Amino acid sequence: MGCIKEDKVTIFDKKIYIKMWIPERLVSTVPIILIHDSLGSVDLWKDFPLELSRKTSRRVIAYDRLGFGKSDCCIEQPSVNFIKEEAGVLFPALKKQLSIQNYILLGHSVGGGMAINIAAKDKDCLRVISISAQAFIENVTISGIQKAKEFFTKGNQIKRLEKWHGDKAKWVLSAWVDVWLSSEFSDWSLSYCIRDVLCPILVIHGDKDEYGTIAFPRYISTNVGGDSENLIIKGCGHIPHKENPTETLNAVIQFLK
């Protein structure tokens, strides 16, 4: 049956929440590490990590980024360089605390962008799976975030985020919308690191994604320095691992073979 473990590790005097799914039989000691999206958390992955662990026979590790879920809160808003900072500062510290050497990354949305940044810096990353990752800023990206901001600031909709983030919910929302809608972030792209990704990458994207067109996966797969595979899921929005879990999991399994 395998087992599930939970823990908190200390990074720069802050507690980071970790959850680990360990299958009964391991085919490899190389774990898959999940990086969540802008409103995400460990718990919001739902059953996906368990199924991923079962079907790949690998250890799966998910963590709440600082300020999210069950990790400690942040007081300051993230800088416009928060994606670089996760890759260059926070993730390496987490990797060291968990005594991880080689690993595989799976990131959703901005987590996909972070995974690409990490892989560009760290050759211990053997493979990357990006799901619905943004590669630059499109009009649909801005429009989607503006609509989400309007939704969560009306009535009691913020309670939807409080369910997962508690009293950090307003910070989580602000950390997303205020940074991504700022003029300083308008020219952001993956161009500064994408060619340094030399490990194989699987790029998954829904053709109905509310926050980015298929120009994103095309850009990523065309510009990485290593081998790439694309999966464009028809009729799928921003969360393929929930909307089309079977197709998403099958693609990941095949990629890891």
Score class of each variant (00 low, 15 high):
K8F: 13
V9G: 04
V9N: 05
I16Q: 04
Y17M: 06
K19C: 05
W21P: 05
T29H: 15
L34D: 01
H36M: 02
S41H: 06
L44P: 10
W45R: 01
W45M: 00
P49E: 10
L50W: 15
E51V: 09
T56W: 06
R58P: 07
V60R: 07
A62N: 11
R65C: 09
L66Q: 01
L66F: 08
C73M: 15
S79E: 05
I83L: 08
K84I: 00
L94A: 02
L98E: 04
L98D: 02
G111W: 03
G113C: 02
G113M: 07
M114V: 10
M114I: 13
R127K: 13
Q134N: 15
G144F: 09
Q146Y: 11
A148V: 13
F152V: 07
Q157R: 15
L161A: 02
L161Y: 07
E162F: 00
E162L: 03
W164S: 08
H165F: 07
H165C: 00
H165T: 02
G166L: 09
K168V: 09
V179K: 01
W180H: 15
S182V: 01
W188Q: 00
Y192D: 12
R195I: 07
L202G: 01
V203G: 02
H205E: 12
D207W: 09
K208F: 10
E210T: 12
E210R: 13
I214G: 14
I214H: 12
F216Q: 10
F216P: 01
T222W: 13
N223E: 04
V224C: 06
V224S: 01
V224D: 05
G225R: 02
G225N: 04
E229P: 14
I232E: 10
G235L: 00
G235D: 07
G237W: 08
H238M: 08
H238W: 04
I239T: 14
P240G: 07
K242P: 08
E243M: 02
T246W: 13
N250M: 15
Q254R: 15
F255M: 05
